[in-house]
Nucleic acid binder design. Structure first.
Lengths: 204, 204
DNA sequence: AACCTAACTTAACGTCGTTAAGTATCGGAG
DNA sequence: CTCCGATACTTAACGACGTTAAGTTAGGTT
């Protein structure tokens, strides 16, 4: 079964070539520059060739998004070894915001855009692939050591509130940082303030 | 100068007819259904007629957005009379989230989309037209009564952190409520939790 | 009565996502 | 060795989009 495997491998290769081209366009020129035709240009194929490998544009973007979710979760691996859960939470907040500010296009697609039904390639609940699970782990740890206020007995609810708070910093910055309406404090200052804010809210 | 005034009035009328048609499409079918051609259909004009009244589609959307910012700020008028600043803050959070959840399309355009350089028709700093100013007023009041922790001595920074926190609840819900990845707590529960969260963080 | 201009319309351009139909390549069966 | 069918593409086209150019009509001014 030599040729069959080769075909399979080649098919996988061109898939990743398409994804890579899309990712480059996406990162450098924003999501609105990612068109089937421009992706096709980059890999020197006709636009319709892409449809042989992806159902449609949404499916392609969803797969891009999936890769990014994994890359995002991997950012937290470095801080997983921090023993003190309070410090781990603080660093997690910084890592989260940094990712969003360094990759605003990706962040928008991942967390600020409705559609994109996620695929199955990420192992749910595994903290090294699933950042939400990582956050829940921190909260469970804090709770286990009796550091949380007693009101925060629901891990999911607590995780969702903390996530919302830190997401708000990133999302508002991405969407509104060029808005002269508000006299914005520097985003780094807002981030640190939010991290303190979260700590004051949940710790005893 | 009778006819001249009439012309002016008619011009204003058709402008608002266009805006109304756009708003209806927008609210009922989402922003992606707002096309120049469909707006034109609704008012029984040709698509190009709109360009006589608005520079382009972005300008039209920006103007829509402006109306919505004013309507948004007016929602807070009812709670402006609440004497207790703590309770006023709590109610403001609820009003904010309710607006976002009841008008997700508008909320997305107003607070989750980068572009839309705001126009000049809103009086900045006037709490009855500018919701950010309204929030700052609450914080200044809290501070004036010595209810805030001493760390929150910067009104702008404090307002921006609180806004981010509550925006995060709305924004995540709009973008991710249909995501099965996370076992979401009901948005009402998250909202109340965030309001408590904010209070615990900033009050003495 | 002639004219000018504001307020439109029709036609068109170039873009987009996507589908239909055609073509070449190539592994495997007779 | 030849033929076949599937695989992997291409070209052509459709309908929708934002927008511009050119043409038309109606009403106030001179």
């Amino acid at each position: 079964m030599g040729p069959k495997e080769r075909r399979e491998r080649e098919r996988e290769e061109i898939r990743t070539r398409i994804l890579d081209a899309a990712r480059e366009l996406f990162a450098s020129e924003g999501v609105e520059s990612v068109t089937m035709r421009r992706i096709a240009d980059r890999i020197e194929y006709s636009p319709t060739a892409i449809y042989f490998h992806f159902k449609d544009k949404d499916a392609l973007l969803a797969e891009l998004c999936d890769c990014d979710f994994r890359a995002f979760a991997e950012n937290f691996a470095a801080i997983a070894r921090i023993a003190d859960p309070v410090e781990r939470l603080r660093q997690a907040g910084r890592v989260y915001v940094d990712f969003g500010l360094m990759h605003p296009s990706h962040y928008r697609l991942m967390f600020m855009t409705p559609k994109t039904a996620q695929s199955q390639t990420i192992e749910k609940g595994n903290p090294s692939e699933d950042a939400y699970a990582f956050l829940k782990g921190i909260i469970a740890d804090l709770r286990g050591r009796g550091l949380l206020r007693e009101e925060y007995d629901n891990v999911d609810l607590t995780a969702q509130v903390i996530w919302s708070a830190i997401h708000g910093v990133v999302a508002l910055d991405i969407a509104k940082c060029h808005d002269q309406w508000v006299e914005w404090r520097p985003v780094a200052e807002r981030t640190e303030a939010m991290i303190d804010f979260i700590e004051r809210a949940v710790l005893r």
